[in-house]
Nucleic acid binder design. Structure first.
Lengths: 223, 223
DNA sequence: CTTTTTTTGTACCATTTCGCACTAAATCCC
DNA sequence: GGGATTTAGTGCGAAATGGTACAAAAAAAG
């Protein structure tokens, strides 16, 4: 995902254009930042401290862009938050899609999905950062309809991904006929939400993995 | 302004003492607020907007106390947040204890616990406010060790409450020997966390109730 | 009535915060 | 080289924020 997005043609002649649409020739002074990595830094900060507690100065320091540049590139703080969240979701969606694409037994697929979630939630220089969707639900979702819609969407998509997983498993005979993919999916999503909360409370990885293992056993039967 | 707030023993002889420790005779100017209801208002505000996005002016307006009084009564903003959270947890603990005390079948007990959670999460003038623990995990828990400890505690206590519930059910023969109370409890807690997140995204009550119903079926078997 | 004690409420301060002019710099086009 | 164009970076300013000093007010105690 993190494609080097080819910044501006600089450093030399525009010989090696990677693959991206690659803007042909920019006109004025070249940017001193790469929008993509700057957005990544912003996301990182927002994930650590949330919307309200993150100041533009903090964002400016983290991205290396000064405030006017930040503003010019991404709009105001709210827009930047939304773009950060979009990026987070795109990344998560890609990860999930990648796993769902594999032709694996449910158990393995669940293991992969939960492991991916843990990697995301536990990453972070100063302590695990949890799930951005859960954080956003807890803060901006109430007052901001647009952001709330994104949260709703994220939750729904996760449910659907898991449901797809269980439905297929049922078709393949891995689950009993009595199994309800939608219910199982909601429980799997719930487990995701729960480990996100616990991660931010600094529950150690092993404990979270134990929770995941227990959940999988209940969802698809003990190994 | 707004002095309806007749508080302590006054208006007549201290004849009708309700039940509380009832402070005997205060010395100086009487308070224009009741600490308890003020704290309740503060909690309400914090639950709606979170720590960082709630200003002292907001709190002052909500409680009817001016900032210096607020400070004198509860300390700075962080202390007020902690006291609000404590109050929230005390209340939740009381509710849970009340339910656990009943000699009911697991299913009924779970139904009662989840119903109580939904009542808490869905209340609020302007939209459901979710779970304070989940919100706090998503915001202050990373940077503030004391607050993080409270969140850890809250999560652990919830797990234990559910585990107690399932363990007893197992003893009473309501659950198969193969059932693991701890694992089931974590799934129940996860369901709690999940409906808290969804509530803030304004998922309608019926949908949340459906999730709860599905979870209960998986946890203790279909009715 | 006076003193003492406690709370209230106004006013203030130092900082932070967000946003935006405005100037300087760097690159492209002719 | 000269002009056009785009970005960088300094810095300002209005508003908000957290916190507090201080005097007035309200009650009990003497």
């Amino acid at each position: 995902m993190v494609q080097k997005k080819k910044g501006p043609p600089q450093g030399g002649p525009p010989a090696e254009i990677t693959a991206a649409p690659a803007e042909p020739k920019r006109r004025g002074r070249p940017r001193a930042y790469e929008p993509d990595v700057a957005l990544g830094k912003a996301l990182e900060l927002f994930r650590a401290t949330g919307f309200a507690a993150t100041s533009l100065d903090d964002l400016s320091a983290a991205t290396g862009m000064n405030r006017p540049s930040l503003y010019g590139a991404f709009g105001d703080k709210r827009e930047l938050y939304i773009k950060s969240y979009q990026r987070y979701r795109d990344s998560a969606r890609a990860t999930i899609g990648e796993i769902l694409r594999q032709d694996w037994p449910v158990r393995r697929q669940l293991e992969a999905l939960f492991a991916a979630a843990l990697d995301i939630y536990l990453s972070g220089e100063e302590g695990p950062r949890g799930c951005f969707t859960v954080m956003t639900a807890g803060s901006e979702a109430i007052a901001d309809p647009d952001i709330r819609a994104m949260v709703q969407n994220a939750v729904t998509e996760l449910d659907k991904a898991f449901a797809h997983c269980f439905r297929r498993a049922k078709e393949k005979g891995e689950l009993p006929d009595s199994a309800d993919p939608v219910v199982l999916a909601q429980l799997a999503s719930a487990t995701i939400h729960s480990i996100a909360v616990r991660a931010r409370a600094r529950v150690p990885r092993e404990a979270l993995e134990a929770i995941v293992a227990g959940a999988i056993d209940v969802l698809v039967g003990r190994k």
